[in-house]
Amino acid sequence: MINLIVVLTTAVMFALLLVWWRWPVFRLWIEAPKYSMLRQESRFNDPDTERESATNLSSIDTSISEHPQVSGD
């Protein structure tokens, strides 16, 4: 069982490193959120940005969005 833990964890880590090393697009994709986070932060800190009040249940679309942004060119 110990071997299983070690092998599984090591395999997952090596797989991730391999993908990162062999596929630069993956690097861009995985790094994107750190920029969008900063953009959001700057928007929220801008006092001129319009604010949306949407804190009652009826105003929210409660359906789970499908997995996103995937589209073939």
């Binding site: 861009l28 920029y35 589209s71 073939g72 060119d73």
Partner: peptide
Amino acid sequence: PAEFENVAPVSVRSRSTSWLSYAHVVAFGA
């Protein structure tokens, strides 16, 4: 701020990278 505004946000819309959209689901399952 332009430093990150210009460099960053990118999205994967190519067929070759579409599976990445499910990577988090797979990882969550794991």
